[in-house]
Design a protein around this nucleic acid. Structure first.
Lengths: 217, 217, 217, 217
DNA sequence: CATGAATGAGACTTCATTCAT
DNA sequence: CATGAATGAAGTCTCATTCAT
């Protein structure tokens, strides 16, 4: 039961985790510039010096926090969508449109549970502007080929209209982010999933009436 | 008629304009917290005290700047789309889908010309979070009924699929914002229009292949 | 009586003077690193920000203080020795050996009155080491040609032994500094003049018995 | 009796030596306040705690370093000058003036080889000011009687002019220090010996032309 | 009404010292 | 006895805001 898993690594890691978790909360709540590192240290139950020992300076602490957030998101979505299956299995099971929907909803779920992550991304841009490449976009780039691949398969399978795959990837991701950010700004952090859901459905099926003989009938 | 364009007020107004314009540039480039009010005063060619006399404090200066940005955007889009015509005329001329497309592109055009506006919106959230309602969302709310109305007409005319109008409005606006922000973050401020264009087209027509009957046939 | 001399320049200059004077005292008493700029500000009766406004940062404040010290020394010695006369007049009046003696004693007098200056020079070296050229050595370089010139004249007049002028200049200045520093370190800041006096006399006349004929006779 | 040269003590002594040697280098290069004890510990290959165990605190470590420097100097000069001979033998061999010259040059040689020692002395004053009696002056005091004695003998032997012995001792030592410090500050650490040599020669023989009888002849 | 010098609260960061391991 | 992670006091510097001129 009590397997005693590497005590040394664990203790140091625990402390780092604690600092990052609290940093996430405080940065999200107060904003980067408005955050006093002392507060984070206090909440994490460590001295201010310890925070600096581990992360160097406030900027690096923030960047580490941003990375931490995105990684948690990545893990969550991976687990939620994949559930130990392979991509072909998932496509076979769901079909491409439904799979895309599931992926987006999995992301939305995470952000609804941890809306601080969105605030952190906004803070990151607000503070660093062009000087760094946004953490969550790095995640997006890393997974872009996956998304593009799925879309291509969807087109090949005749489930998606034959469109430019990259533009479609951008559109679906931009839509997700638009929903998340607007949702946050409107103070509806607890309705992110449904907002994303309805938006994705509209994107998948289109707003325009498909001709459509049937309508006039 | 209006023979004396009150020179005094005008001079004061000019100064305010100058301050706001420079504030916009500096806030967008440096971020709210990283901006020294002195710099804005210098660029505007006035003393620091004057800035404070006109705007009270740094926060109010920023908020005035944000409002200034959004109003400029509003004017631009209005003019670009309406061109002295009435809404019914526009719909008759373009049809609803094309009109929606035009509206979105007009907005995108403005933001591509003045990407600082996007940065300002990000700064606004980053600094004030829940404490104020975002300036650009106020614009969105004000024009929501217009957008909703157009969509309803589209549905009634059989040009749009019969969907929840408010959800569709949200989706199209979220998509716009997603494109703008992601475009900015990716350092592609000069491709905002084409990004919005391809995304809107996808949203209008949908990703999923329609009347698949024909495909399988 | 009350001539009202340029009030603007004077007021700003007065404040700078006040800051420098107090900086000199505090730096000399506490050492550069051990000095809190706040203390200097308090003593000068200004805010900390004012000190930074005028001098940029602590290092520049210190360097300005060092320069201030050396300039005061320079003025003092100039006035004390020259007394409105020209160099030839002085030489004619005193002869070279006596003039050298007077110069050294004038310097020594200043340092005895303001021993902080010596401490400042020590601090300068202690803090900046090779990174800057010592302020008081710059003064020394500037006046080197003068000293060398006097010595050359002394040799030409047969009052000084024909030695290497530059080495002699170095020796006499090094002796001065050795006296000043050692005097300070031994806590005999109020005996600097007499220490210098006796040392200079020994250097002028030499330690070795001049054979010499007369002695053995 | 003491056949086992206590290996434990020796090992500890080795560590102390290593710490002191490295402390000397770092203190001389970085200055007292700018030195991070961690750096010394790293260079010495021990933990920071060990440094504190051995020396108590940073100040005591520095003072120990200063003492270490002066002792090394003392040993060097002793060995270089005395070479297993007694004082009378040396005087007989060289005569007093030449012996004085040798002593000064021996000191200068050491400082030229280890100019850090000079920096350490400057640091000592810069940091501690009146609070401690300078380490190298303690050495000077200890050997003062020796120097005074030699001078007295020189006078008695008719080799030196009959001057105040203590003043002469001070002058010659001050001259040495003036040369060392000025040489260092001018960035001529590798010319200390020649600087001292020429200065001492001038002090011994004087600047003023002697027996001017011959001149007028 | 405009100005910009002065202010000082506030936040980052360093590093001497301690102490649990 | 050695270590080095943790601590927090202390000091630098910035900049929003004020106010005398």
């Amino acid at each position: 039961m009590c397997e005693k898993p590497e005590p040394i690594t664990t203790k140091a890691a625990k402390k780092q985790q604690s600092i990052l978790t609290n940093a996430m909360m405080v940065f999200a709540k107060e904003g980067f510039r408005n955050t006093d590192v002392q507060i984070i240290a206090d909440l994490a139950g460590v001295g201010k010096g310890t925070v600096y020992r581990h992360f160097g300076n406030k900027e690096q602490l923030f960047l580490a926090t941003a990375k931490f957030c995105v990684e948690r998101m990545s893990q969550y979505a991976q687990q939620k969508v994949m559930q130990e299956k392979t991509l072909p299995e998932l496509i076979e099971e769901n079909g491409v449109p439904l799979l895309l929907r599931k992926i987006m909803l999995a992301c939305a779920e995470f952000y609804q549970k941890h809306p601080q992550t969105i605030e952190i991304m906004i803070q990151e841009r607000a503070e660093f502007r062009e000087s760094i490449y946004p953490t969550h976009l790095m995640f997006r780039e890393e997974n872009r080929s996956g998304l593009d691949g799925i879309m291509q398969i969807g087109i090949d399978r005749g489930e998606l209209r034959p469109t430019n795959v990259m533009q479609a990837s951008d559109a679906i991701t931009d839509l997700l982010w638009g929903c998340l950010i607007s949702g946050c700004l409107q103070g509806q952090k607890n309705k992110l999933v449904e907002r994303v859901e309805s938006a994705i459905d509209l994107l998948l099926n289109g707003l325009v009436a498909t001709d459509r003989s049937s309508n006039t009938e």
